[in-house]
């Protein structure tokens, strides 16, 4: 039994014309093991954020469901913390207060000293010591998301849900924070479900990458095993023999699915077949 399983999940929205429904994605089935870092890549609008929100309990599926640790997800909870693309820090609270709000909720029995120490630990972990009393407005995008990560890690959730966490951060800072996230993940070995459209980010961070076709009626077409040993860093990862194979494979997939309907014309995958698993290590041994 896997730790987090997404079981035959479909999501329909009422269509704009009023009658009928638009299918965002359908029949998505994923199994994620404890401590695994899994990423979904797809074009904008393919429903990957909706998928993440359903796991978070912030949206309800039309069919199917998500099961975490043997329990079906029925609503949001402290065991599944989201890191938002828009940071979602309370602008009227300081950095410390933003993290403390989460810690206080997760550990309601703790004394204020315990809470303070715990908050301080995670603020230090993301390198924001000295900025505790600043308001989010006074921080750069990168620093804001560090607060978002500190808040998410601080409540030690069973699953971390990263919703395009670095999309609003400039490219140079993004690389630095990605590396920091690698280190934080190495230290905590959280189960992580991430949504992104940054291929390099996905390869650097993930154990497996799920490739999603375009909506409407998007589905997960392929699952790519990132066969690059850990620990990884941005500098060394590009030396790995599998790096460009994986990267090219994903980019080819994304280009093929750049416009609506093309995926079906290519006829590579029939409607109801499950996702194709891609593993370059196996391919190497097979050849």
């Amino acid at each position: 039994m896997s730790f987090l399983s997404i079981d035959h999940l479909s999501k329909h929205f009422p269509s704009h014309s009023g009658n009928g429904k638009v299918c965002i994605f359908e029949d998505v089935t994923v199994k994620i093991n404890k401590g695994e870092f899994v990423t979904v890549i797809g074009h904008s609008g393919c429903g990957k954020s909706t998928l993440l929100n359903i796991i978070a309990g912030l949206e309800t599926p039309t069919e199917g469901g998500a099961i975490l640790n043997g329990q079906e997800v029925t609503g949001p909870g402290l065991d599944r913390m989201v890191v938002f693309q828009s940071f979602a820090l309370m602008p009227w609270m300081t950095v410390f207060e933003n993290v403390a709000l989460a810690v206080r909720s997760a550990y309601p029995t703790w004394s204020s000293q315990e809470i303070k120490a715990h908050v301080q630990k995670y603020i230090t972990l993301v390198g924001l010591q000295g900025a505790e009393t600043k308001k989010p407005t006074a921080l750069s995008g990168g620093m804001k998301q560090r607060v978002g990560l500190a808040r998410a890690f601080s409540i030690e959730p069973k699953v971390l849900l990263l919703d395009e966490p670095f999309a609003q951060i400039d490219a140079l800072t993004r690389g630095v924070i990605q590396e920091e996230l690698v280190q934080m993940w190495n230290a905590t070995r959280n189960t992580v479900f991430m949504v992104t459209h940054d291929v390099d980010e996905a390869i650097l961070l993930s154990d497996r990458i799920m490739l999603m076709t375009n909506g409407p009626s998007a589905r997960i077409a392929e699952i790519v095993d990132v066969t690059i040993p850990r620990p990884r860093s941005r500098e060394t990862i590009i030396e790995d023999e599998h790096y460009y194979k994986i990267r090219n494979h994903i980019i080819h997939f994304l280009v093929r699915h750049a416009s609506h309907g093309q995926a079906d014309e290519s006829g590579e995958h029939t409607e109801r077949s499950g996702p194709v698993e891609i593993n370059f290590r196996d391919q190497a041994t097979n050849q």
Binding site: A56, P76, V82, F84, M90, W92, S105, A106
Partner: peptide, 25 residues
């Protein structure tokens, strides 16, 4: 912004706490 309410929902804040820590400010 709906993210604020989503954070409040994830953190399982009570209705009253949600009111005076998130909605009112």
């Amino acid at each position: 912004r709906k993210e604020y309410l989503q954070v409040a929902a994830i953190l399982q804040l009570s209705w009253f706490k949600r009111l005076y820590t998130v909605i009112l400010p």
